[in-house]
Structure formats: structure tokens, C-alpha cells
Design a protein around this nucleic acid. Structure first.
Lengths: 349, 349
DNA sequence: CTGTTAGCGCCTTCAA
DNA sequence: TTGAAGGCGCTAACAG
């Protein structure tokens, strides 16, 4: 295996100096057309490629951003909320638009938290996406930020870190009004069990506002804190039925909870949406493909991804930046409305 | 904003030379205990952190691997098969075990293919995970490999690149035998529409073998090539019913197809599993949460992830490596068996 | 327009 | 045990 070829080799081949090669290849001013042509030719012939580590070392920025997916503080390999994975793809697309590479790290265990991306010159900033439930994780990244890391996040339970989110209150209220408009009165809110988080509080308050507007009774069910979102939704819904709580609709604080709720309803022979309408929140990729298709308050993942990247860039550049609310859209599918065109209204589920 | 601190600053603070600092921090031989202690102390006080770019430039390897998710050659933002996203998480975990960072890139459009990770010293090798349908993509990465990139993949339609996969033939045969054992006779195979791929051919041949063993008639439905897997499965299944093809079970070549098939069955009032049993292939994360829960031939994603990383390391090291088959497990849920404990058998779906 | 000279921050011989 | 010097491969001033 032969030595890697460097800009010196190209220089020699083209009969010029190394610095001229550098200028020629990067299109700097001050190189004659003829020289540039010859350099490019030799570089191509030698299949020369600059070592990006050296390029980066000389310049200042790394051209990379780190994306950390913060999972539940459980055993390794716990399933990640699929909305986060969708968001990851959108962040990657947005980063690619800025010619940035992304480094991805899945973290959940305090023993393996890592955030020194900027300090170690591994990346220029960090986007943390994850579950509010990993408090130790959020504390860790908040501390990293105070030590100079550039951090923007999605999913933080609080506002210690600059956090992007949608208008959860408004989204929840819209969902509830939709249920009311289609004739539902006993609408139950299924919360995530973990109350100390921003998104939950806002979705809950949106639910309460909308119910109060209509003078309808508020009823909340709380998921237990263990297991996946789906299992939590499943258990919470089963509880409701076992306790003979009357209800004709469920507004779940997340799509995962809603999916679990639908399983439980089905298990007990409740027909969706005839007996119970269900609507979730997030807009996970599988929502259109559940049985019946799940209505949801969809967060615009593409916009969220680009806002995150944009804000991080501004933070890195030391500019002022703001985190606008991510747009929401009520997606009305068969789970909440028997007459939706999106699915048949006469089936049993 | 003050200048970043380097090993020279530590040297000055500790009253030693820069090279001594380097040795002390990296635990090399030939530094007195007392000197090392002082260096460590000053380094900590100054919060010194080596610039990883410089470290990497001096060494040879980058300590990074690139993971490319190859999507359908369609518009940007097309949803990624969720099994690939799961696999990505497992690859990340395996890479972390080897103290490697991973660079992630979602690629689908020939205009933006990029594979020069090794040549540009961005990473030491590439793991390509993706859909067989992106032929241009697979050709691109095959060419990159011939130009010196280290590439291992999952999902390639052929064997031009070193490809990890499970024993698709055996897995399919197992699934079919399970259906036969539970009394099904008219079992339909729903293929992905794109026949020129290894996994499809093997799953199909496994189906045919198992059916032939039992002297049962083979019947294949092909999905159209457009849209998501789910939509393809939906349309193919609808076609079957519209054409009054009799069947009591569906073996879908992938979970996505199976999810779509379940939607179609439900739309037409067919009860799962009483009227039609359904089983998929892959083991996507949402399979336990469909209604009814989806039986599937589950590929061990954790093992797949570690095999991919392991094989890539051996390739990088120039060692011999082999790609063993990834283990499969038949997961028997309610969609294929009314008496499963995993769900109720008396419900209507 | 081109070449020379310094580094970027670190690791690694080789002398002292 | 320590330090001086020479790169890793490149960019960027500054001379010529």
C-alpha cells in the first residue's frame, strides 16, 4: 500500500509550489488560468484529496455538529420514540444543506454521558433531542453549555437550555375542540406520567382550557412511569375501563400513548371511533398506518430540523437567535371521525 | 472570548516542556511521578483538552465511521423504513463500544451521493444501510469501494459489496410453516414489487419451499413500485380482495407491507386473524403495537449492528473477516394466532 | 502571479 | 527523566 498523496505531490507533478496548489484547488484569487488548469489536471490524475483533518486544523471550525439522542435512563437498546428518529433525519437534511456533517450519539446512561464536542474540537455545537424523562441527562447537557458547549435542544423538560418546541397549549386546545365539534363530551386526557415537563404541562393546560370553554368536565388519567409510551397508554386506558370510568374520547399527550390506548380499547371490544374517538400528539411516521389511522396534532419535523440547525449556527456565530414555535397541524384521520375520507366508516376495528 | 488553551499553556503553567505534557497526559513511560502529578494538576486547573483534530492528524486513523442511510430515490424527506432507523441505533451502540464516533448521512438523490469518507480522511470506513430499490446508490457505493473506501452494507440488492443479512430463506420457510401448523392453507405471499434483490428472492424461495413441502398452492401478489411499503401492501391486498382471490393468510415480505395489508383487510371487514392471519418480516419497533399485534420474523438488530461494526473494523485493519448470518426469531403475536396470550382472541379488529 | 515562510496543536524520535 | 526539533497536511501572510 503506497503512501497517500499530498498537496506536495501535486505541486511536484505540476511543477509549482505547494501553496499554489492550495490556492488553485480552492479557487482563491491570484492564480493564472493556465496554472490552475495544470494543477487541477495533475490533482485529478493523482486522485488527490485534501485531508479534511488538516484543513479543519488550519481553519477554525470543524464543520460538524453533534446530534445527541437522549433516551430513557434504562438499559441499553431501549426503543427510541420514533418521532425523535424522524427528527434526526430532518436535522441531518438541514445540516447537509449547510454542508455540515453530523455526528450522532445515542446516550441514556449517566455513566456514558458525553458532551465535550466543542471543547475537544470534535464538533462546533450540539443538538440534543430526547425524552424529558432523563433528568440526569438534561442536567449534564445544561452544565456542558455553561462550560462553553453550544447546545440547542428539543424535548427538555424545562428551559434551562435553549429549547425548540411547538405551541403545545394551542395544539392541545385545537385537538380537544375538534373532538367537541364532532360530538364528544366525555373527553379524557392521558398524560405521560411525568408531570415535570414543559410540553406536558402545556398540552394539559390546552386540554383544560378547551374543556372549560365548553363547560365540560375535565378528567385526567396518568400513565405509570415504566415501560414504553405504548405500554403506558395501554395500561392507563385499561385502568379507566376497569374502573368503569365513562368516556367517549381520548386525547393522549403523545402518539405513543394513543397507540397503546387503541390497543387497550380494542382488547376490551370498544370500537374506534364509534365508541371512543382517539387523538394523539406528535405526528409519528406510523400514525397513518395504525388501525384505524390515528388522528394527531402533527409537529412539522422538517421545520423543526431546520430551526434547530439554524439556531445552532447562530449560537456558534455568536449572533442573536430566537427559537420560533414549530408549526402544528391537526391531522384528522379515522380514529377520531367515522366519516373521514381517509378510511372507511363502517368497519369494525 | 479568550484564546483556547493548548498543551503549551499547560507546559508553561507546570514549568515543563510541551512534549513532557503530552507524555504525561497520555500516560507514556518516562515521566516522573511528581512531574506527571503537576502536569495533570495544571491541565485540570486550566481545563485543558487536546484538540482531537490535531491528535488525529498525527495519528493515522480518524476514529470515526460513517453510516449512510440510503433512502428511496425520491423526493427529500421520504420516510425511512423504521427497521433501518432501529439498526442505526444499534450500529451507534456497537461503535460506541469501540470508542468510535459515527457520522450519519441520509442519502437518496444521485445528485448528492457522497462516499469519499476514507479518501478525505473524514472517517475510516462506511456502513451503508438502505433500501435495495436505490440502484444508483448501490452502484455508487460499489464504485467507491473499488476506489479504496472501506464499505460494509445491509440491504444491498446484490453481493457486489460485502453484505450482511440474515438467512432469509430459512426465516420465510419458518413463518410459512407456522401458518400451516395453525391450519392455514391458502397462504399468499406479498412481495415488494422490486424483484431484483437478494432478500426478496430468498424470502420468496423460502415461501415456495415451505408451501411445496406441504403440497400447498403457491400464490404471489406483487406490490407496485410506488409509495411507501405500507401503501404498497395496502394496494396489493385490496387488489386481491377485489379480484376475489381466496386466501386465509398473508405472508408479507416485510413488516411495512404487512401493516398496509392489515389496513386493507380491516377496511374490507376481514377479521384478523380469524378470517386472515398475517405475518411480516423484519421486526420493526412498532410491530408489537399494531392492532392486532403483528407476528413477524424478527431480525436481531443488536447483533446486526455489532456484526456490521466488527466486520468494518476487520476490513479497515486489513484482516480477514466474515459476515455471519444474523439470527432470526419467529415472533408469534395475535395477527397470526387467535389464541396468543399477547392479545385477546375474541375481539373484532 | 508565484514561492517562501510560518504556523494550526499535537505526537515522537533523539539528544542531553 | 526531560527538552529540542521535526513533522502530520494544510492555509495564509508576506515577499519576490
Amino acid at each position: 500500500m503506497t503512501r497517500r498523496c499530498t498537496s506536495f505531490d501535486v505541486a511536484e507533478g505540476a511543477g509549482v509550489s505547494q501553496s499554489t496548489v492550495s490556492k488553485a484547488l480552492r479557487g482563491s484569487e491570484g492564480v493564472s488560468v493556465e496554472t490552475r488548469r495544470r494543477v487541477l489536471e495533475v490533482a485529478a490524475a493523482l486522485d488527490y484529496r485534501p485531508d479534511q483533518r488538516a484543513v479543519s486544523l488550519r481553519s477554525s471550525a470543524t464543520g460538524r455538529i453533534a446530534v445527541v439522542i437522549l433516551g430513557d435512563p434504562k438499559i441499553r437498546g431501549a426503543p427510541i420514540n420514533s418521532f425523535y428518529m424522524d427528527l434526526l433525519a430532518h436535522v441531518a437534511a438541514a445540516a447537509a444543506d449547510h454542508d455540515q456533517e453530523i455526528l450522532v450519539s445515542f446516550q441514556h446512561d449517566p455513566a456514558n454521558f458525553f458532551a465535550s464536542y466543542c471543547q475537544d474540537r470534535i464538533a462546533d455545537g450540539i443538538i440534543v433531542i430526547g425524552t424529558a424523562r432523563n433528568s440526569a441527562g438534561w442536567r449534564f447537557f445544561a452544565k456542558a453549555r455553561s462550560q462553553g458547549e453550544n447546545v440547542i435542544c428539543w424535548g427538555s423538560p424545562d428551559d434551562v437550555l435553549p429549547t425548540l418546541r411547538c405551541d403545545n397549549h394551542a395544539g392541545a386546545a385545537t385537538a380537544v375542540r375538534h373532538l367537541v365539534a364532532t360530538g364528544r363530551r366525555r373527553i379524557i386526557f392521558i398524560g405521560p406520567g411525568w408531570r415535570r415537563q414543559h410540553a406536558y404541562r402545556d398540552r394539559r393546560s390546552g386540554y383544560i382550557s378547551a374543556m372549560s370553554e365548553q363547560r365540560l368536565p375535565v378528567f385526567e388519567a396518568q400513565a405509570s412511569l415504566t415501560g414504553t409510551r405504548e405500554l403506558q397508554g395501554y395500561a392507563a386506558t385499561l385502568d379507566l375501563m376497569n374502573n368503569d370510568v365513562p368516556f367517549d374520547a381520548i386525547f393522549a399527550a403523545s402518539d405513543g400513548l394513543a397507540v397503546g390506548a387503541m390497543q387497550a380499547l380494542n382488547k376490551c371490544g370498544r370500537i374506534i371511533p364509534e365508541d371512543v374517538a382517539v387523538i394523539g400528539f406528535d405526528g409519528i411516521g406510523s400514525a397513518p398506518y395504525t388501525v384505524p389511522p390515528l388522528s394527531t396534532v402533527e409537529q412539522n419535523g422538517a421545520v423543526a430540523g431546520s430551526y434547530l440547525v439554524e439556531a445552532l449556527h447562530r449560537m456558534i456565530a455568536g449572533e442573536d437567535y430566537q427559537l420560533p414555535a414549530v408549526p402544528l397541524k391537526l391531522i384528522w384521520r379515522a380514529s377520531s371521525c367515522a366519516s373521514s375520507t381517509n378510511s372507511s366508516s363502517i368497519n369494525r376495528y
